[in-house]
Nucleic acid binder design. Structure first.
Length: 863
RNA sequence: GCCGAAGUGGUGGAAUUGGUAGACACGCUAGACUUAGGAUCUAGUGCCGUGAGGUGUGAAGGUUCAAGUCCUUUCUUCGGUACCA
């Protein structure tokens, strides 16, 4: 063992040893209980960032801990390798996306290895390899055959700079989530996955995921957005045409005074044709279509619409209702038509006020009255039915069902359910993705590629600079195809690629059998390893990735590939890594290295202005508050870096970066190192104490008890909720106690107890700082890796205290304390408390009204 | 607007079923050892007060012998979502 703690030497040595011995390689073994630990795989953007370091450090603790508990631990890693940044980089640097991606993978793999994570690298997968995506193409065809994948022409979010379609989820505040530019609407033929078929099932199972944070299941439930309501039919005044509406408030149907259709609604054009409003409607619809979402957002709640020139009839009142097309009616939700009840819906109210439409009150508050003329907002609460014929006087909540039944009986409506969740659009007009294995034939239409022709390999020579549409569309070689059905030679291959969320929806299954070539997954391997016991990743994937994965698992189950519904047993969403920002009035965000410390505060190196320390926010390059893992590794090594990430905050909370804090973690390890180095010979020449607590006293007794307490505490913190911060602080406490021992005399018992403490310390530290622990373990004379050791078990008897500290309170305030033998009876404790000098002083001449004694804890004297 | 989470020292964060608030760190102060230290070790460190003591977990009430913890009201911050009929 070296005199000084030099992480680099130790870490290189152990990483090499682990790799040479293949200690992380696992195989399915039915004799062993499996544990599948998974962390979200990274996009190979070029370098590992601190978010990855944190995520994977958390995972590695669990993996190593479970291994020491005797589980057969599957802990894989791979690459979410398709995606737009590769194309953007390719255009910027004139490299090929594949070359860029694989180079990044090499760099990042090295970084992960440098951090000493316990991955089974033999299972590594990259989603951009044909061996991987061929099975995705295969499943796509299966889904197509079942109608689970289908094509429709629809409005899509179109990002002009990226030349691509975006999923709703990829649009943030009406801007592209990647480039941040405004998104506009465009109509294209797109492939969709019918995830809405599973809306109900996905929703119901949200309540059957006890290992998931409630926050996440709630977000998913809201995203699925089930609402129960009714569909009602409104006939047109002078034609057979019927407008179907969805409403959650059938109790207000008597108050419906007008109708609103989404601008894209097919009836808009049909109904307005030939009326004097035709021109006005057409220009309104065109305007809305041209409008991008952000300008809609700018108008923010400004309701607009145009009269179609026709009327429909309220099925229950017979009232003539003018039909409008309005910007707030959404084609994608419900039926795209809204029956407007201005008295009881705020949007309808605003619209009615703007266009001077009738307002009829049909639900009256239980107390007081409302007048439609003087109302200044809609009344949306339940109440008593009025102006509603036979339903008058009824509680409006009861009327919801009664009116629906009434409509059903008359054939004018039915109970129905509407979901906010839409089908998943997966077509992307991009190059770097999985080709969609379909052929378009002028005769046969859309035909799947025959299975034996899979994979459809992504060609290497696409021209990415030719923006506009799919790059694959410009490759005649690729595009040209023979129809598998009729043999026509002028068929055309689909030139779109799939959304990269498709790859990440099933990669965790492929880890079970990365080289399997007879199918998408090896049924046996999946049966053994799946489902994932613990999944760890960022909360930013709470909705999309996790919902899609749950959906894909169901699709694969229907395909007979797996026999379970839910892929992830337990989920941990770790918080973000934050750091303080620094701003200069002249230069905006600046790097810490651009700050010069002067006499009167800190100033900008470039302009000399006084800089301001800004808020602590998520690390990002643009805010210049990032920490480079490479620098940390160079300065402190992997163990310190990992230790700080785990110590500074519990995993589910945000981690505020502190350079001083990292220093502290390094100091802790150095301190332990020095302590053990100082006692090296003694540790080697002693054996761990294996007696009981009873035969110990003084410091030895204290250390023995502390050792067992620490084992219990650390084990509990890992098992219960992964609160590594408190586990580590418990270990620090143990070390603090170890420091109080004196070695100036010869004492075999002391050495044995100390040996036990060191041994436990090293075992407990090993999941957090594995290289460090291995080095000390080896010094102690062990020749096996710590990974093969058993996790220590505490002895409950060692925790039994014979003396308890009792707190004395007077009227709830702390006034004194004393120690007494454990389990002393109440009368003794009480007498002792009342006898305390300080307590006597506080009681004075007042009468003691009551004395509460809590066994082994406290005495409260009430005066 | 709606949904969710969280407010504790100068800082990150601890506090079992209500029972010593501030564990463990960072920072800071003083001292020791040093040619030196941004190394190490020792002591101290919520706030007010010389002191006895008082006071203190976003704010205001309440329950209780006892409240960071339970209840009511309220404020703030962060995250998600947003014309969903």
């Amino acid at each position: 063992m070296e005199e000084k703690y030099i992480p680099r030497d130790i870490e290189d040595k152990w990483q090499k040893r682990w790799e040479d011995q293949g200690v992380f390689k696992v195989d399915a073994d039915s004799r062993m209980e499996k544990y599948y630990l998974l962390e979200m795989f990274p996009y190979p953007s070029g370098n590992i960032h601190m978010g990855h370091v944190r995520n994977y450090s958390i995972g590695d603790v669990v993996a190593r801990y479970k291994k020491m508990r005797g589980f057969n631990v599957l802990h894989p890693m791979g690459w979410d390798a398709f995606g737009m940044p590769a194309e953007n980089a390719a255009i910027d640097n004139k490299t090929h996306p594949a070359a860029w991606t694989y180079a990044n993978i090499d760099t990042m793999r090295k970084q992960l290895k440098r951090l000493g994570f316990s991955y089974d690298w033999s299972r590594e997968i990259a989603t951009c390899t044909p061996e991987y995506y061929r099975w995705e193409q295969w499943l796509f065809i299966k889904m197509f055959e079942k109608g689970m994948a289908y094509r429709k022409e629809s409005f899509v979010n179109w990002c002009e700079p990226c030349q691509t379609v975006l999923a709703n989820e990829q649009v943030e505040d009406d801007c592209c989530w990647r480039c941040g530019k405004q998104v506009r609407q465009k109509k294209l033929w797109q492939w969709f996955f019918r995830i809405t078929d599973y809306a109900e099932d996905l929703l119901v199972h949200c309540d059957k995921l006890p290992g998931w944070p409630e926050k996440v299941t709630t977000m998913q439930k809201n995203w699925i957005g089930k609402s129960v309501g009714s569909e009602a039919c409104f006939a047109m005044e002078n034609s057979d045409t019927v407008i179907h509406v969805f409403t959650t408030r059938p109790d207000t149907i008597f108050g419906a005074t007008f109708m609103c259709l989404a601008p894209e609604h097919p009836l808009v054009e049909e109904l307005s044709r030939g009326t004097e409003q035709e021109g006005a409607v057409k220009s309104f619809v065109d305007k809305i279509a041209m409008q991008d979402r952000s300008s809609k957002a700018l108008e923010n709640y400004e309701k607009e619409g145009v009269f179609l020139g026709v009327y429909c009839i309220n099925p229950l009142t017979g009232r003539r209702m003018p039909v409008f097309t309005a910007n707030f009616a959404l084609m994608e939700y419900g039926t795209g038509a809204v029956m407007s009840v201005p008295a009881h819906d705020q949007r309808d109210f605003d619209f009615a006020k703007k266009y001077k439409l009738d307002i009829i009150l049909v639900v009256s508050p239980k107390e007081g009255t409302l007048d439609p003329v003087t109302m200044d907002q809609a009344y949306t609460e339940p109440g008593i039915m009025v102006h509603s014929g036979e339903f008058d006087g009824m509680d409006s909540r009861d009327a919801i069902l009664k009116i629906t039944e009434h409509l059903e009986a008359k054939g004018l409506g039915k109970r129905t359910v509407s979901f906010r969740l839409r089908d998943w659009g997966i077509s992307r007009q991009r190059y770097w993705g999985t080709p969609i294995p379909m052929i378009h034939c002028p005769t046969c239409g859309v035909v799947p590629v025959p299975e034996e022709d899979l994979p459809i390999v992504l060609p290497e020579d696409a021209d990415l600079l030719d923006s506009g549409g799919s790059p694959l569309g410009h490759l005649d070689e690729f595009k040209r195809a023979t129809c598998p059905q009729c043999g026509r030679a002028d068929a055309r291959r689909d030139t779109d690629t799939m959304d990269t969320f498709v790859e990440s929806s099933w990669y965790y299954m492929r880890y079970c059998c990365p080289d399997y070539d007879k199918g998408m997954v090896d049924p046996e391997a999946v049966r053994y390893w799946m489902p994932v016991d613990q999944y760890i990743g960022g909360v930013e994937h709470a909705i999309l990735h996790l919902l899609y994965s749950r959906y894909f698992t169901r699709v694969m189950k229907d395909q007979g590939l797996v026999d379970f519904n839910e892929p992830f047993e337990r989920l941990l969403t770790q918080g973000m890594v934050n750091k303080a920002t620094i701003t200069c009035p002249e230069h905006g965000y600046i790097f810490p290295t651009d700050v010069v410390d002067g006499g009167n505060g800190s100033s900008c190196r470039h302009c000399g202005s006084t800089v301001e320390i800004g808020r602590v926010i998520k690390m990002s390059k643009s805010k210049k508050n990032v920490v480079d893992p490479n620098e940390l590794l160079g300065k402190y090594g992997a163990d310190t870096t990992r230790l700080f990430c785990l110590f500074a905050a519990p995993p589910e909370k945000g981690l505020d970066w502190s350079d001083e804090g990292v220093d502290g973690s390094f100091r802790f390890l150095s301190r332990v190192w020095r302590m053990i180095k100082a006692n090296e010979a003694m540790i080697r020449n002693s054996t761990a104490y294996d007696g009981s607590l009873d035969s110990l006293d003084g410091k030895n007794r204290e250390l023995f008890a502390k050792t067992h307490f620490t084992i219990k505490k650390v084990t509990g913190d890992i098992e219960d909720n992964f609160h590594f911060n408190t586990a580590i602080s418990a270990i620090m406490e143990l070390v603090n106690v170890m420091h109080t021992l004196e070695f100036d005399s010869i004492d075999e018992i002391r050495d044995a107890v100390y040996h036990l403490a060191v041994e436990s310390l090293v075992l407990l530290l090993s999941p957090f700082v594995p290289h460090f622990a291995e080095e000390i373990w080896a010094m102690m004379g062990h020749d096996k890796s710590l990974l093969n050791e058993n996790w220590p078990v505490h002895n409950e008897d060692a925790l039994v205290e014979d003396e308890m500290l009792i707190v004395i309170q007077v009227n709830g305030k702390l006034r004194g304390k004393f120690t007494i033998e454990a389990d002393a009876d109440e009368a003794t404790v009480k007498a002792r408390a009342l006898d305390d000098d300080l307590v006597k002083k506080f009681i004075g001449d007042k009468a003691v009204r009551k004395v509460i004694v809590v066994k082994n804890k406290l005495v409260n004297i009430v005066i």
